[in-house]
Design a protein around this nucleic acid. Sequence first.
DNA 1: TATTAAATAGGAATTATTATTATTTAGAAG
DNA 2: CTTCTAAATAATAATAATTCCTATTTAATA
Lengths: 131, 131
Amino acid sequence: MTNQKKLVLDFLRRDTSHPTAEAVWENVKKQLPQISRATVYRILDNFQKEGVIRVLETKPTRFDGQIEPHQHFICNNCGKIFDLKEEKVCRCLRDGSNMVSVGKVHSFNVNFYGLCQNCQTESDDNLNNKL
Amino acid sequence: MTNQKKLVLDFLRRDTSHPTAEAVWENVKKQLPQISRATVYRILDNFQKEGVIRVLETKPTRFDGQIEPHQHFICNNCGKIFDLKEEKVCRCLRDGSNMVSVGKVHSFNVNFYGLCQNCQTESDDNLNNKL
DNA sequence: TATTAAATAGGAATTATTATTATTTAGAAG
DNA sequence: CTTCTAAATAATAATAATTCCTATTTAATA
């Protein structure tokens, strides 16, 4: 754990605004002025892969130091991003009520990630061949 | 409706692979070689705002000519993108079954869009002031 | 402490997208 | 069917976001 990594992680766990990579860099620079932008990008990428932080599917990408299951509400007007607890998300999607604690939902978008049937079969095959 | 717009829309309604802007451009060029990349970007943007097409929250952005409510399953291995009917999405999120018709869900990400309480109140105020 | 593999800094390069502007065109009006 | 005009387009420059490259530095451990 380098100093750079520690500062990035500390910042993300403190700042709940879902900052961009650029914003993380700007802020960490206050404590470590020579830190490189590329370093911040790489650290964010690694933390993400390790499951230590989470990325938001926004443009530009935003980052979240909180990894307990939750989703996001993005205000179409002010752009602010709010956290939504997982159970509220499910209720909202289930019974189509568009009112949630933080506002009124106009639309939503879900991306599922996993293994498609083809790729599942292939990885099963590979496993079998090794036995 | 210009020829450029027609060709872009026709292509997106025919191609179900959720192409990138670049891919749309490459394909439409086959029929209209002088079409500009910037034109494709602008047309895609306009169609999106009109609700004629849909954008996927991917990097790079992908486009979908099908606008009936549905969500997407992205294979972590091959990268292929599958459509998921809305009711399957809800069932999957509701009872946590991670098997869907197209594969096995490892994770998902939801973005809600709408008006936060502050912005809702503001727009109500504006309305009231006009009465 | 010396060693070394891994990480970083700084900047170049790349990718995706948007802006600019001169030219062209679709569609209205005559 | 022509002429007109606002809107759309082509070509390219510019910007934004991210990744790549490589010489240098550093954390961890022998």
